[in-house]
């Protein structure tokens, strides 16, 4: 029972982390390596707003998410827009942005800035307390994660299937040339996707981070998780990402239960390699067998 509940929580954590990354890649084909850094940035911003500026928690979260969206927007508008189509450059540039943010947060001594170092930055759970589910004690924050995860995926589905903006995002994701001919502006949608994707990274942060503390190192880990999920699921595939979240989530929980926590990460990367060996474009990837058509 333990494994089922905690495995589910774990899987949804993965899904939350990966959903923004998948959205951005699916729409704009940009592998956003700054994903993890925005996650952490939002964590620290929220903490600062609450603790330094004594802001209301909900307001702090809202403000941080807005900032995340703006960061995504800026990153596209001033950097990535000039690198469209060059996947390598996009990776390198967005990873460099990530390094600037993450290492910048840890930077000490400039302008009296102390740097966010150490395990002292803790976000409060939304609701304190635990609950007994089928004999397992689960804290409310974990339940919120489950609820939040389902809500985020559900809302995104509604957004992309029933709003004009969402539909144009999907159109670009499916066939950029055709969508552009029908008057969908590819730069604008990419910009929007990056803003939404960054906000989603932030949303994942505020939901997940109350389980532990905010550290800059987490940024790299989150990036790896997002990459792992989307690679295993097949880059840009939504259903694949959700499926992969559950595969990894449970694989890791089970391996922890069987071999101990140190093996968790080994299993993670091992799973990636194994799956790619047999399905080079991920579980549900749409990479064509041969690009040449007709």
């Amino acid at each position: 029972m333990d494994i089922v509940i905690y495995g589910t929580v774990n899987s949804i954590v993965f899904a939350l982390i990966a959903v923004g990354f998948t959205l951005v890649y699916g729409v704009s084909r940009i592998p956003n390596f700054a994903h993890g850094s925005i996650y952490v940035l939002v964590g620290f911003l929220t903490w600062s707003f609450v603790n330094d500026l004594r802001m209301n928690y909900a307001l702090a979260i809202l403000l941080s998410l807005t900032i995340a969206a703006v960061v995504g927007f800026i990153m596209y508008r001033f950097i990535l827009i000039r690198l469209r189509g060059m996947a390598t450059s996009e990776i390198i540039a967005s990873f460099a942005v990530s390094l600037v943010i993450l290492e910048g947060l840890r930077m000490q001594g400039i302008g009296g800035f102390k740097g966010f170092i150490g395990p002292f930055y803790v976000l409060r759970p939304f609701i304190e307390g635990k609950m007994n589910i089928w004999g397992v004690f689960v804290d409310f924050q974990r339940l919120i994660i489950i609820g939040g995860g389902i809500a985020v995926v559900g809302l995104l589905w509604l957004f992309t299937h029933h709003t004009k903006m969402g539909l144009s995002l999907r159109a670009i994701a499916q066939d950029e040339r055709a969508a552009m001919m029908l008057g969908v502006n590819s730069d604008r949608t990419a910009m929007i996707s990056l803003s939404i994707g960054s906000a989603l990274a932030g949303l994942a942060a505020v939901i997940i981070l109350p389980l532990g503390s905010v550290t800059a190192e987490a940024g790299y880990k989150v990036l790896i998780y997002a990459l792992a999920v989307s690679i295993i699921g097949g880059l840009g595939s939504w259903a694949g990402a959700v499926l992969a979240s559950f595969v990894i989530g449970f694989a890791m929980k089970i391996s922890t239960a069987m071999f101990g926590a140190v093996w968790e990460s080994v299993v993670l990367v091992g799973t990636i390699i194994l799956i790619l060996l047999f399905k080079p474009s991920g579980l549900l990837g749409k990479q064509k067998e041969l690009e040449e058509r007709v």
Partner: peptide, 28 residues
């Protein structure tokens, strides 16, 4: 070797993870 079949960005991403993988294994 198993990753050489991967194309483009898949290879880039997987190769990015290898050093971390090595670290995890040594620690584990």
């Amino acid at each position: 070797l198993p990753c050489l079949r991967l194309r483009g960005i898949y290879f880039a991403i997987v190769s990015f993870m290898f050093p971390l993988f090595a670290v995890y294994i040594i620690v584990a």
